[in-house]
Design a protein around this nucleic acid. Structure first.
Lengths: 207, 207
DNA sequence: GCGGAACCGTACCGTACGGTACATAACCTC
DNA sequence: GAGGTTATGTACCGTACGGTACGGTTCCGC
């Protein structure tokens, strides 16, 4: 269903560029047809209607990102800690990406229509893979005895909160991402340090 | 500047109802005029244009909520803990309110236009008062020796992350708020418990 | 080279909406 | 009660945009 043709992928890529550059208002069918050198009739043939185009943009963008699972080899707690820091940095990087912000704004702006179809799509293809990856990592650490928790979901949500704070909403509201994306590394290490003080063996020196 | 007349307040209240009920698409000037029994000409005279109306809605909504400062009397650490729990519950309640969600969706959906004017307004009148109140509470607790931190902003952001996680964005995306607003009390107490393990007595100040 | 499918470019249609103009009515003030 | 101010309701305009139709062209299979 999702595997679009290369031509359609190119059109979707162009649509993402338009969306990032000018917001939803800039993403008109006529404008996309002009920018992508295709006809409006093809757009409607391929994607059905405008909402189908928006949904296709989300699935296309999701198809571009890979979510590597954790390596099963995790000999030391330092390896585990480093994996968590890498996850935290990746998470901040993804959330502050311009395409991610544009798609989230799009889905949020339409969350009142169609039963939040785009929002569900974004949660399924965007947030869920990240959560699955992080929870696998956390449970691997638990199996090694590096962290202790009974509810994986709760531990993940705590980790998410420690890493992101309210930075995502602030960026969605248009605040320049200086405060969040800038000192990404320091932010990630602080969050993981705090996470270990809540779920690990007390304070570990990460630096 | 903001103190609107009672008539204008009634119109703005009506506009908020329209926005909550049907999203941004339902908030048209003609529809508002019909619902509020006023004329479009009056709308444009009072608020300038549609963006002015949206801005007025935000400031009007902000004028309805009061942000009580912490009582200076804070004899015991239990009082301080209770105040933190109340703050956390209030925060969850505010963020999951339908008017708040609708206004945040509105501002996020327009964050690409006009230099995110609505987003700035929402941050200034919505989030900033909450942050000021919470930081005053945190510093009061620090003066009493109940918590230790060097950076108030960092402590506040950690508190925010522990309380809200990514629940705000999930609700903005249209997810039913069962997971967040439901067990609000338990969520708040858990977050404050975690906050004390990070910043309470015996906890090491980070960096 | 021929038929058909896919596609491009453009023109077109209907409608919804922001914004303006105007006629009428209520409400003061003197 | 005359004049001015303010508000309502409606009609109107321009435009932007989603969606459709159609003629022309490229490309592929046979």
């Amino acid at each position: 269903m999702e595997p679009f043709t290369p031509r359609q992928n190119a059109v979707l890529e162009c649509a993402l560029q338009l969306l990032v550059a000018g917001g939803e208002r800039a993403l008109t069918t006529a404008g996309l047809a002009r920018a992508a050198n295709c006809s409006k009739e093809s757009l409607y043939k391929w994607f059905g209607d405008r909402d189908g185009l928006l949904a296709a943009m989300i699935t296309y963008q999701a198809s571009k990102v890979r979510t590597p699972g954790p390596r099963e080899s995790m000999p030391t707690v330092d390896d585990f800690t480093r994996s968590l820091v890498v996850f935290a940095e990746d998470l901040i990087g993804v959330l502050s990406g311009d395409v991610s912000l544009a798609l989230n704004r799009l889905a949020i702006g339409q969350a009142d229509r169609d039963g939040a179809q785009l929002g569900a799509l974004l949660r399924e293809h965007g947030r869920l893979p990240i959560e699955v990856r992080a929870r696998a990592l956390l449970e691997l650490g638990r199996r090694h005895g590096y962290v202790h928790f009974s509810d994986t979901r709760e531990a993940y949500e705590t980790l998410y909160g420690l890493v992101v704070h309210d930075g995502h909403v602030r960026m969605l509201l248009g605040e320049p991402p200086a405060g969040l994306a800038e000192d990404r590394s320091r932010r990630a290490r602080l969050a993981i340090s705090q996470f270990f003080r809540l779920y690990g063996h007390g304070a570990l020196d990460i630096e």
